[in-house]
Design a protein around this nucleic acid. Sequence first.
DNA 1: AGGCTTGATCTATTAATATATATCGGGTGA
DNA 2: TCACCCGATATATATTAATAGATCAAGCCT
Lengths: 194, 194
Amino acid sequence: MNYEAEALATTLKSARERKGLSQRDLSALAGVPQSHISKIETAGVDLRISSLAALANALDLEITLVPRKAVPAVKSISRSAAVAPTAQPDVVKHIASISKQMSNVKNLSVDQSVLQDVQRQFNDLQQYQNLIRDSAMLSSIRDALKAANDVGGIDALRQAASQMARLRNDLVHLDIKPSNLPRRAYQLDGDDDA
Amino acid sequence: MNYEAEALATTLKSARERKGLSQRDLSALAGVPQSHISKIETAGVDLRISSLAALANALDLEITLVPRKAVPAVKSISRSAAVAPTAQPDVVKHIASISKQMSNVKNLSVDQSVLQDVQRQFNDLQQYQNLIRDSAMLSSIRDALKAANDVGGIDALRQAASQMARLRNDLVHLDIKPSNLPRRAYQLDGDDDA
DNA sequence: AGGCTTGATCTATTAATATATATCGGGTGA
DNA sequence: TCACCCGATATATATTAATAGATCAAGCCT
């Protein structure tokens, strides 16, 4: 039975891991208990589409019904459009660590506009995490956020924001220079997820 | 709540109608009670993916999770690859009538291989129902099947199979001649289903 | 070593789907 | 008119997903 359910579950799991989210993170985003997420990913749970939609939505995915004939083409497109095409493992960890500090930062009682700025910088940066090769900058950003959380300094927060902006700027440069000409939709890299 | 469920439900419904299947036909194909199908199509039922998979499978559809960014492209591809791009209404009815006879034929106690042959011919024929312009042949096929059901004649069955084969052959000829050169994926015809 | 996070697992309860079965009114064709 | 098929609906029952909450071993970092 339930082969389809399993396939969807593994897709969800790999999407979650690709984004560097823990089950509890996803739980907060999707409003689904962590225990349930675990059950879904391991045991073969025949979940309802409301649950599937909640999880997929939190992962920037959408449920679609496609004709069998079109499945290979759809798979190809989906692969090439993957939000974050496999960042390096340690980079994912660093980003996750920063993300945690970010969630603490949100509760700081400082100028809202500064908070919004940091948040947006972080969101933008995440889009390019796959291009990051050196994680030293990430450590520095994490430390700045931690300092902001510990001593409540707004200066550290601004510093973190500017570091994020600079890093992202460098990454964008890397991105637009070499390989933006071909734009092929197929065969980027051999990845997982059936 | 449950917007996603509704969208999927309407997709299922239009796919079913496009194939000229009644809820009871689909019920037989998918192994889901007709009452349940009705409930799904009308009321906002939060169905489980096993049900969704069963129905989708019977309609030659597959459940996929695609990145939000890729959704428009996927929709485009799906539209162009639609299994049966709107056959003529009366043809749909004739096919439905034949389909009904087919379900009766299955219970006939005759040579299994002949039954399988008829079934396959019918499946193949359905793929090309959108090209049928004259329904006289369909009436003839229906009558042959009915005769087989009434008097249990295996000859009538064979005749029906050969008629199906011939009709499909003609249709294939029509199909490969005129418009198989472009192969574009976009803008075939303005159809329904969001 | 101690603290913290992660994923898996347990319990108990609630809520909803799924199934079997039968019926109903509306529409259609013989 | 009669018979048939359509989709919608009702009832009763079984199954199980979903939730809230807590716990646990394993791994990681300080």
